[in-house]
C-alpha cells in the first residue's frame, strides 16, 4: 500500500472539508483496502467516516425507512423492521459476501464497491475503467462473468452488488451531501452505464458523501424473492441474480418489480417489462413475456451467451417464487 495520511472527523462538514481529488472516504474498507493493496488505488489521504452520525435506521414521514450510510450490512439484514417489511433487502444482503465481510461492510460502501472484472483487478493489463483509453481486454478475452446488457465498446464490466439489485427493484433513493449541499438521487439514476466513460461507476461528485438510503413505504413483503445463481453454493459473485416483487390482488398482478444483477454495469430494471405484468394472472406464461422484454436488447459476448437463457429462466423462477409467497 502507498502511504497515506489518516483522518477521523466527527462531523459531516469536517469530512467534506477534508475531501478532494487525492482523498477517499473509508467506512468498512472491505473493497477500498483490497484495491489499495493491489495498488489499483493510491489515495494520499483516507477520511475515516465511522465516527459520523450516520448509523441510525429511522422511519420516514412517508412511511418508509431511512438507513444511515454507516449501518452495517449484517446489521441491516437482521434489523427486525427490514426482516418484517423489506425481506427482499435482507435476502439480497445475505446472498452476498461472507459473514465476516457483512459484519464490516457499510450500506453506503456497498453501493460504491467496484466491479470484480479480472482485468480491472490486474494492474498488468489494460482497462478503460482503471486507465482511461488503455483498452478493454475483457471484450475479446475471458468474459464469462461479464455484461449481456447495456455494455459499451469501452467496457463490459458488471456491478457486483446484491443489495443494490434489491434497492433498484424497490425504487430506493440515495441521500447525499457535498459542498453544494444535500440531494436525493433515484436509485435508477445513481449508477451509470459505461458508455465512453467507464471509469465513472456512478453520478456522485468527487467530494460528495452518501449519507443514507431511503426505502419507500412499499416493501412487497408478502411476495418477493431474491434468486442468485453462481458458480458455487455460497460466497461467490452472481452470474445472474434476480430481485422480484409482486403486488397481488388474488391471482391478479397489481404491480411488479424486477431487477437483475450480474448482467450489466448497474442493476438492470425495465419499467416496460414490469408494466406488461399489470392486470395479468400471476402465471409462468406472463412471467416469460416479462423476461423476454427485459432481455430483448441482450448482446452476448463470446463467453457468456449462456447468461441470456439463464437470466430468462431465473426471472420466471423468481417471479414464481414471489407469487407463491415470500420464501422463508
Amino acid at each position: 500500500m502507498t502511504p497515506f495520511s489518516y483522518h477521523r472527523p466527527e462531523a459531516i462538514d469536517e469530512a467534506l472539508a477534508l475531501a478532494g481529488p487525492d482523498s477517499r472516504f473509508i467506512a468498512g474498507g472491505t473493497n477500498l483496502l483490497d484495491l489499495m493493496k493491489e495498488n489499483l488505488l493510491h489515495p494520499r489521504r483516507l477520511i475515516d467516516i465511522n465516527r459520523l452520525p450516520l448509523r441510525e435506521i429511522t422511519p420516514t414521514p412517508e412511511g418508509g425507512l431511512l438507513i444511515g450510510a454507516l449501518v452495517g450490512n449484517a446489521e441491516l439484514a437482521w434489523d427486525p423492521r427490514i426482516e418484517a417489511r423489506y425481506p427482499l433487502v435482507a435476502k439480497a444482503i445475505l446472498a452476498g459476501a461472507s459473514p465476516q465481510l457483512r459484519n464490516m461492510a457499510s450500506t453506503g460502501g456497498n453501493l460504491l464497491q467496484r466491479t470484480r472484472c479480472y482485468y480491472f483487478y490486474d494492474a498488468q493489463t489494460p482497462c478503460n475503467k482503471r486507465e482511461p483509453g488503455s483498452g478493454c481486454p475483457a471484450r475479446d478475452g475471458l468474459n464469462r462473468m461479464h455484461a449481456i446488457l447495456g455494455a459499451s465498446d469501452a467496457c463490459v464490466a458488471v456491478h457486483p452488488s446484491d443489495l443494490c439489485v434489491a434497492l433498484a427493484a424497490l425504487g430506493a433513493q440515495v441521500h447525499t451531501q457535498g459542498p453544494q449541499g444535500k440531494r436525493r438521487i433515484d436509485f435508477a439514476d445513481f449508477h451509470r452505464l459505461p458508455d465512453d466513460e467507464p471509469w465513472r461507476d456512478n453520478n456522485l461528485d468527487e467530494r460528495e458523501l452518501v449519507t443514507a438510503v431511503e426505502l419507500p413505504p412499499q416493501g412487497y413483503a408478502g411476495h418477493c424473492a431474491y434468486l442468485k445463481l453462481r458458480d458455487r453454493a455460497s460466497y461467490a459473485f452472481a452470474l445472474v441474480s434476480v430481485a422480484a416483487a409482486l403486488d397481488l390482488d388474488g391471482e391478479r398482478i397489481r404491480g411488479a418489480r424486477i431487477a437483475l444483477g450480474g448482467v450489466a454495469h448497474k442493476p438492470w430494471r425495465l419499467v416496460e417489462a414490469e408494466q406488461l405484468l399489470c392486470g395479468r394472472r400471476a402465471e409462468p406464461a406472463a412471467f416469460a413475456e416479462a423476461a423476454e422484454r427485459l432481455l430483448q436488447s441482450a448482446q452476448p459476448l463470446a463467453g457468456n451467451a449462456f447468461k441470456i437463457e439463464l437470466a430468462r429462466r431465473a426471472i420466471v423462477r423468481a417471479l414464481g417464487e414471489a407469487a407463491g409467497g415470500t420464501p422463508r
Binding site: Y6, I26, G29, T30, L33, D34, L46, D48, N50, Q100, L101, N103, M104
Partner: peptide
C-alpha cells in the same frame, strides 16, 4: 471480521 481488510487505526 477479516483482520486483513481492516486498518489497525480504525
Amino acid at each position: 471480521i477479516n483482520s486483513c481488510l481492516s486498518l489497525a487505526v480504525m
